[in-house]
């Protein structure tokens, strides 16, 4: 069923204005960003700020092109992406399995819930040094750091979402002759897929945070390592470039999940 848009002049007028407004906002954003870059560059060129500490857009761009050419930057980006992706996947897999297990054995869930709450409210970077002592430096440690930030909250949120399933819907499965497994596969899991996506959206960011913490402390490669290394040898161009790239990565990942989210929500209506 298609609703009639453009049915009247008033409606058409409204739609045009709304579209214009959207366009305006978009270009204003670009303008603000470009203005910021221009101001920064001017300030650096005219020596209003010390470009040794604050770098400049052109210097960063030059470094970017140079480092992309000699492949070193791509490798660091790739490593960070790989580690974050792995942490994220492990968080998701582990959380789904655990939360499912808790749903099937609610006493177990109830018993372990307070422990999870405590672990979740802990500032997770406090765990990183411990992980380094246990596992040494290297990718394993970094991936574990990446997982440690999000995983407890992820399990908790997912378990609580599972728990809140409408009991009447579970009764429906009973009236149709279903067992506990079918309650899970037919109701609990599909019903919570939108929740699951929004939890995933948060956790992809958290995985990135964890991985960067890990690379700060135990990395020999990756953007986190570049930031720490750059700040130690006063290559501030490198530090800021890495931060900019991190911004881009975060935006990209978030955008991807958002897209997925929209697709799934559309299916769910």
């Amino acid at each position: 069923m298609k609703t009639q848009i453009n049915s009247s002049d008033g409606q058409r007028n409204y739609m045009r204005k709304a579209k214009l407004h959207k366009l305006l906002i978009f270009w204003c954003r670009i303008l603000v960003f470009a203005g910021f870059l221009a101001l920064w560059q001017t300030a650096a060129s005219f020596k209003w700020i010390d470009s040794f500490y604050f770098s400049s857009p052109l210097a960063i761009a030059k470094l970017f092109v140079h480092d992309i050419r000699d492949m070193s930057l791509l490798r660091h980006i790739g490593i960070t992406l790989l580690e974050s992706g792995l942490s994220f996947l492990l968080i998701i897999v582990f959380s789904v399995i655990t939360a499912t297990f808790f749903w099937f054995y609610p006493s177990l869930g109830k018993m372990l819930e307070p422990f999870l709450i405590v672990l979740n409210s802990l500032p997770k970077s406090a765990l990183a040094p411990l992980i380094i002592v246990w596992l040494g430096t290297g990718p394993r440690t970094i991936i574990l750091c990446g997982m440690s930030v999000g995983i407890f909250g992820c399990i908790l949120n997912l378990y609580q979402a599972f728990e809140q399933t409408d009991p009447e819907r579970l009764k429906l499965i009973e009236t149709l002759g279903g067992n506990k497994l079918q309650k899970f596969t037919k109701i609990v899991f599909p019903q919570n897929i939108p929740t699951f996506i929004s939890i995933a959206k948060v956790n992809i960011g958290l995985a990135l945070v964890g991985v960067i913490i890990g690379e700060f402390l135990a990395g020999r490669q990756g953007l986190g390592y570049l930031i720490i290394y750059g700040s130690q040898v006063f290559k501030l161009d490198m530090v800021i470039l890495s931060i900019v790239i991190l911004c881009a990565i975060a935006m990209l990942l978030y955008g991807m999940l958002n897209l997925l989210n929209k697709k799934i929500i559309a299916l769910w209506q």
Binding site: E168, K171, L172, I173, L176, G177, K186, Q191, L267
Partner: peptide
């Protein structure tokens, strides 16, 4: 039951199939 409890992620046909699937 009192409410129809049709599942919003299934279309009408798939909702009707629920019992047979189970």
């Amino acid at each position: 039951l009192q409410h129809d409890h049709l599942l919003e992620w299934r279309d009408v046909y798939q909702n009707i199939l629920l019992g047979l699937e189970i």
